[in-house]
Write a protein that binds this DNA or RNA. Structure first.
Lengths: 167, 167
DNA sequence: AAAAATATATGCTCGGAGCATATACATCAA
DNA sequence: TTGATGTATATGCTCCGAGCATATATTTTT
């Protein structure tokens, strides 16, 4: 099999996976777009600032502020003043936000698992090993790491290759 | 390695790959969003109708019509009446559109190749084999196939697993 | 031939996203 | 301490893509 063909197949698979991942996640979010990622990120990093969120989501500053406005209006998140830097906002999920976050992660997990079900256990292990190697090669900065892991279920990702690469 | 962790890693990798893929592709397109996919799809399927394009891009009808309006206004595509169905529009790329299409595919290819460079040749073969198996399991309808392959370089994808699955 | 379905086009409105700007706080220099 | 610069957040303004509802043309079905 020629390399260019392999690259094509991998690219198509990545698009397909990312599509279903985002579709499943967004279906449980209050609105389409980056809201689902914002919720899971805040859920994983309580006290996250708007600026870090902005970089993780690759949005403009005002876009991020408005997104947070909407999340707060929906009762999913709340603003606190950051203890260490009084300019910054510390974002946290409300109990309702936590529930939504769990629903998003569960939906994402279900979709992924069913897409991977065609692989045998050995194949899944092998695929995961190579995926981890690729992931380590991709992530360089902390901002990029937040971006890549924006829909991850962190409780399931102890010993994450992204963290390993940054450390 | 627990399955849930493997799924997490694979999901993150898919997001990361899809991100760079779309970023690289959109950088060569006249506008962000689905324009890059529209151009490569029309490039691969000359005579494509707006309705098929709509389904491949998961847009509304009016959104697709307006997108095509813009592509035509930019001189990248042209509308013809379809020979078999006089209701339908047959879309084709102009020479300028072909150039843009090639640039998009080349940028996508470059980004993918560099992301995959950390794998050895054997690992790449193995990863591609498993990716092809996953892809075959994912694609069911022809519309979905167009969607999955919306940024593929079709000339590099002879004997594509998606086509194999549909046949 | 009439009715239903399909493909495209367009007026209208909504809402998310960015730009420019304003304010508050932090940090560094003198 | 004070002043200057940089950083974090907020908001008025505008633009533009996206969907809804509707209209028209063509094909298919009855």
């Amino acid at each position: 099999m020629a390399d260019s063909k392999i690259e094509n197949v991998i690219g198509a698979l990545a698009l397909a996976f990312a599509d279903t991942l985002q579709r499943d996640a967004q279906a449980k979010a209050p609105e389409p777009g980056p809201a689902a990622s914002a919720i899971t990120l805040i859920g994983h990093v309580p006290g996250l600032s708007i600026e870090r969120l902005r970089r993780a989501l690759s949005l403009s500053h005002s876009g991020t502020v408005r997104l947070v406005d909407r999340l707060v209006a929906e009762g999913l998140a709340a603003r606190f003043s950051a203890p260490d830097d009084h300019r910054a906002v510390a974002l946290r999920l409300t109990p309702l936000g936590e529930t939504t976050c769990s629903a998003i992660l569960a939906a994402r997990q279900t979709g992924l698992a069913s897409a991977l079900a065609v692989l045998s256990s050995e194949e899944l292990q092998e695929f995961g090993k190579l995926a981890a190697k690729l992931l380590r090669g991709l992530v360089s900065t902390e901002d990029h790491a937040y971006r890549v892991c924006r829909l991850c279920n962190y409780t399931a990702c102890l010993d994450c290759p992204v963290e390993a690469e940054l450390a």
